[in-house]
Structure formats: structure tokens, C-alpha cells
């Protein structure tokens, strides 16, 4: 069962990659543009830190590290799960979603596997560079265990992005296209680029327990920053990722059920 899906995903990927290579210029342009976009954000932080030494007690490299984790986690979502954006206007509205329902495989799997987003590689690239730049400047010694935890944290971060987008994209089953909502909620992740401690308490709680974007960057990064005071909470990151994925998938199934009973 699982191996069959892995095989299928591999085949979907292969096809998607072939299409990508067909438009090589596009691929480069996409990757480059996203890299430039990310770079603009980092440059901004750099400019600000040219004038200050610390932001609310956080150093430049610590901020950079948070930024890097956010970018890398988001790139997982951007590369593999980008199709979530299109549920309403490319699948449900034109009736293309029906196609997925008459296939003998899980419709969510099919829907996700339908697309691989090339532009996300730019984000991944920048994210890794940023993390790599910031790492030696943190006062922690990097061993195998630390690396392992870092990778787990980044993957968890990616899946939190996925879960949140999946949850709000699912609303499309009731309202045809929930893209404005998905987009607005996604914009909340802007908060997560900086230490949550700079925000008002209400915002912090909201981003920790309601829409858990805090776990996509700040908390996982704080695990590696000595004396951040969030090391304990940071360990929850994988748990939050799993719980939100399960919750989002449950919600997706509810949506699917509603969709098959109204067919709108």
C-alpha cells in the first residue's frame, strides 16, 4: 500500500520534472526570482542591523537563523505542496476535481502529486545558505545529534505550513474558492520571520496555539539559541506538526464528504 504510493509519487515527480526541463529558461527564471525575493528580506535585516546591535536582545545571526529555518521549511511546502493554492480555481470551479474522484487512489495524494513547483528550489537554496551562514555564529556546538534535530525541526516546520494551507484550502469545498482566505492566513507567516518576543502577548499566543506559525521558525530556532527560554516549547515542534497535519486531514475528509453530497 505505502510502497505503491511511493512508487506512484516517484512516477508523478518524474513526469513533472520532465515538464520542468522542457522549459529550462522558466525554471531558471523562477528559481532566480524567488532567490531574489528572499534576498530582499535578508538584505533588509542586514541594513537594520548595520545601525543596531541587537533586536530586543537577539543578535543578527540569531535573526538570520530564524529566517533561514522559515525559508527552508516554507520551501518544502512550496516545492511539494504548492498545488494546495489551486484547489478552488483550478480544480473545483472548472470541475476538474471530479477527475480525481474517479481514480482508484487517494484524491488528496493525487491532488498534491499533480504538481511540483520548481520555483521553490530557489527558496530551499537560499534557506540552506542562510542557515549555514548563521550556524557557526550561534553559541552551540554542532554535533550529529544537533544536526539531526535541526533536520527534524525543518521538516516539521514545512509540514506545519502544509497543514495550515490544507486546512484553509479545504474551505473551498463549501465556498468554491477560498483562495482569499488561504492567502490572508498565509500572510500571517510574516510574523514568524522575527522573534515572537517582540510582539504583543495576544499575537504571540495566537501564533503559538491557534495558527501555529510560531512553530515554523521561531520556536525551532530558539532550541539552538542558548538562553532563549523556549528550549522546552521548541521540542513540541514535531508534535505540533503531526497534530496539525492530522487535524487538517480530518478536516479535508469532512470537506470531501460535504463536496460529494452537494456536488457544487
Amino acid at each position: 500500500m505505502l510502497s505503491r504510493y511511493i512508487k506512484l509519487y516517484y512516477l508523478f515527480c518524474k513526469q513533472n520534472l520532465k515538464v520542468m526541463l522542457e522549459y529550462r529558461m522558466d525554471f531558471l527564471l523562477g528559481v532566480l526570482s524567488v532567490m531574489l525575493q528572499q534576498f530582499a528580506g535578508i538584505f533588509f535585516v542586514k541594513i537594520v542591523f548595520d545601525h543596531i546591535h541587537a533586536l530586543n536582545g537577539w543578535t543578527f545571526y540569531e535573526i538570520l537563523f530564524i529566517y533561514g529555518i522559515a525559508a527552508t521549511g516554507r520551501s518544502i511546502h512550496h516545492i511539494f505542496f504548492d498545488n494546495l493554492w489551486t484547489l478552488g480555481w483550478q480544480y473545483i470551479r472548472p470541475g476538474k476535481f471530479d477527475r480525481l474522484l474517479i481514480r482508484p487512489i487517494n484524491p488528496l495524494f493525487h491532488f498534491i502529486a499533480d504538481r511540483l513547483q520548481q520555483d521553490g528550489f530557489g527558496q530551499l537554496f537560499i534557506g540552506i545558505i542562510v542557515i549555514g551562514t548563521a550556524m557557526p555564529h550561534l553559541s552551540i556546538s554542532w554535533g550529529v545529534l544537533e544536526f539531526f534535530i535541526l533536520v527534524v525541526m525543518i521538516i516539521a516546520s514545512g509540514f506545519i505550513f502544509v497543514a495550515i494551507n490544507l486546512f484553509f484550502a479545504t474551505l473551498s469545498f463549501w465556498m468554491v474558492d477560498s483562495l482569499p482566505i488561504v492567502w490572508t492566513i498565509f500572510n500571517l507567516s510574516d510574523f514568524a520571520r522575527y522573534p515572537l518576543t517582540i510582539y504583543h502577548k495576544g499575537i504571540r499566543h495566537f501564533l503559538t496555539w491557534i495558527v501555529p506559525y510560531g512553530f515554523t521558525a521561531f520556536y525551532p530556532a530558539a532550541y539552538f539559541i542558548e538562553g532563549s527560554g523556549f528550549e522546552r516549547l521548541a521540542l513540541l515542534t514535531p508534535v505540533v506538526a503531526i497534530v496539525s497535519c492530522i487535524f487538517a486531514y480530518w478536516f479535508w475528509n469532512r470537506g470531501l464528504k460535504a463536496f460529494t453530497s452537494t456536488g457544487s
Binding site: 513526469q15 472548472p94 474522484l101 487512489i105 460529494t260
Partner: peptide, 21 residues
């Protein structure tokens, strides 16, 4: 649905069942 799907085939007018690209 999935079990049923493996025994049926369908053509829905103008909407393609194939992969576009």
C-alpha cells in the same frame, strides 16, 4: 469510491482526464 473507480472508465465531454502538460 476508490474500489468502484478501478472498475470504471469515464469520458466527461470537454474536460480532459489526461495530464495536460
Amino acid at each position: 469510491r476508490q474500489q468502484n473507480a478501478s472498475h470504471i472508465g469515464a469520458v466527461f465531454g470537454q474536460r480532459t482526464q489526461l495530464f495536460w502538460d
